[in-house]
């Protein structure tokens, strides 16, 4: 036989045999794949952040397809209500309310108020600092401000400002990566609708807390007294706001003598009056004549 034809024929024959074997095998060993799982996986954001409580998006899709009612389509914090509705329409069940969640830093001990006991010069990592006598701050419950959460965040939603972690609530998806990485467990995942938050979790007695940090919750109970909805209790020497009962009135934040309770809504509005008039001042003249036109269009 031709010295070229032999190997060519042999390899072609081999390829053909393998193709046939694999084709038959794929039929014989066919495992039915659930169509809904594929659709669900496509509908999910694919960030694999684990915020739903499962190992990843595909894992969640599997669990969801197996038990739609038990698992619920509203577990994805990244996708929020949109994804929940999509998942529900694929499964043909009620979407339920995907309560948007957000990370809350339970510490307001910035550089100017918290007392430091030692100077930390190790690697810039909260985990490393926490392993050295619980960190450099006098408060053993607070944020160390070395940015483990910033590095854990996939969405650039948490930053260290003045030695304490601050969450950009509009960017945060509530996936919980920061809460999982924080060695001090300062970060909590809470409903987005609750805008008034206790930013201290110091469990020491009031006097001791105040020595460590001027912004600490001393457990005085003024907030509990002023709250009209009985939403606040003092537990472990610091205030706790029941997210179900709180109506975001902000009375407690005003009453708090140590700035341990903060109203996130008030905080966001503060910079607006400062910045807004400056920007609007210049274009106000050309904008003003336009103003009457708008109602006309509406009318």
């Amino acid at each position: 036989m031709n010295p070229i034809m032999t190997p060519v024929l042999l390899v072609v024959a081999l390829g053909f045999i393998f193709a046939v074997v694999l084709t038959i095998a794929s039929k014989v060993f066919y495992v039915p794949v659930d169509e809904t799982v594929i659709k669900l996986t496509e509908a999910l954001p694919g960030a694999n952040c684990g915020g739903c409580g499962f190992a990843g998006c595909s894992d969640y899709a599997n669990a969801l397809a197996a038990d739609p009612d038990g698992v619920g389509p509203n577990k994805c914090p990244v996708g929020g209500a949109d994804v929940a509705a999509q998942l529900a329409s694929i499964l043909g069940v009620e979407a339920g309310s995907a309560e948007p969640q957000v990370a809350v830093v339970q510490c307001n001990g910035n550089c100017s108020v918290v007392k430091t006991l030692s100077e930390y010069q190790g690697p810039e990592s909260c985990k490393a600092a926490a392993s050295l006598f619980g960190g450099m701050n006098a408060c053993k419950y607070g944020c160390l401000g070395l940015g483990d959460c910033t590095r854990a965040c996939n969405f650039g939603a948490i930053k260290i400002c003045d030695g304490v972690a601050v969450v950009a609530r509009e960017l945060c998806t509530g996936c919980g990566a920061c809460a999982a990485t924080c060695p001090k467990h300062v970060i909590r995942i809470a409903p987005l609708k609750n805008k008034v938050v206790v930013q201290c979790q110091n469990a020491d007695k009031g006097a001791q807390t105040l020595k460590a940090c001027k912004n600490g919750c001393i457990g005085c109970g003024k907030c509990a007294k002023v709250c009209k909805f009985d939403a606040i209790t003092i537990e472990n020497n610091h205030a706790f706001i029941d997210p179900e009962k709180c109506k975001n009135c902000g009375m407690c934040a005003k009453e708090c003598p140590t700035k341990a309770i903060n109203n996130m809504r008030a905080k966001r509005q503060q910079p607006k009056p400062k910045a807004a008039p400056k920007k609007e001042a210049a274009p106000e003249a050309p904008v003003a004549p336009k103003a009457p036109e708008a109602p006309q269009a509406n009318a």
Binding site: V21, L22, A25, S26, F29, Y30, V31
Partner: peptide
């Protein structure tokens, strides 16, 4: 082939 067998 082995992958298919394992999957099954």
């Amino acid at each position: 082939f082995v992958e298919m067998v394992l999957k099954k």
